Simulated scan of single mutants.
Amino acid sequence: MTRQKVLVLYLANSALDAPTVAWAVYDGTGETRPMAGDTDTPPYRTGVDALKDGWRLFQASQILPHQRGAEFDVSYLKYEFFFERLVEVAV
């Protein structure tokens, strides 16, 4: 049976080779129970590094211009990339 693992990387800017600033991992196989921020170092330095390791990029956040006056708003992480890896598991 095939299960999905999801990796969410928040990068410093919209380029896939930008440094990772935050991350989360979700394991649909049930083998691990990682949580966001459970390590001091990101699983990948950049989004390109995740691609090189076999993760498939399936969504990137839409790049929208800042509204006037919100150029320095830090209420959310803007550059979010979703990756997946399909894993065969025994049932």
Score class of each variant (00 low, 15 high):
6 V>Y: 05
16 L>M: 10
55 W>L: 05
46 T>L: 06
23 W>G: 02
40 D>T: 13
5 K>F: 10
16 L>D: 10
53 D>R: 03
19 P>I: 07
39 T>K: 06
33 R>M: 15
13 N>Y: 04
9 L>W: 05
17 D>V: 03
23 W>T: 04
44 Y>A: 06
35 M>R: 15
79 Y>V: 03
24 A>N: 13
40 D>E: 13
39 T>W: 03
11 L>D: 07
52 K>N: 14
54 G>A: 06
58 F>C: 09
27 D>T: 11
87 V>I: 14
91 V>T: 12
31 E>A: 14
31 E>Y: 08
55 W>G: 00
80 E>F: 03
89 V>P: 08
65 P>H: 08
58 F>N: 10
40 D>W: 08
34 P>G: 10
47 G>A: 10
64 L>I: 15
84 E>H: 12
25 V>R: 12
57 L>F: 11
38 D>E: 09
84 E>R: 13
81 F>Y: 11
87 V>T: 13
10 Y>S: 02
42 P>H: 12
82 F>L: 11
78 K>V: 01
22 A>V: 02
84 E>M: 11
46 T>K: 09
91 V>F: 09
8 V>S: 14
90 A>N: 10
77 L>M: 09
71 E>P: 04
41 T>R: 12
4 Q>A: 02
60 A>S: 14
30 G>C: 02
58 F>P: 04
74 V>K: 00
67 Q>I: 05
30 G>M: 03
38 D>G: 04
53 D>W: 00
81 F>C: 08
67 Q>D: 10
43 P>V: 02
6 V>Q: 08
43 P>A: 07
61 S>K: 06
21 V>P: 00
10 Y>D: 07
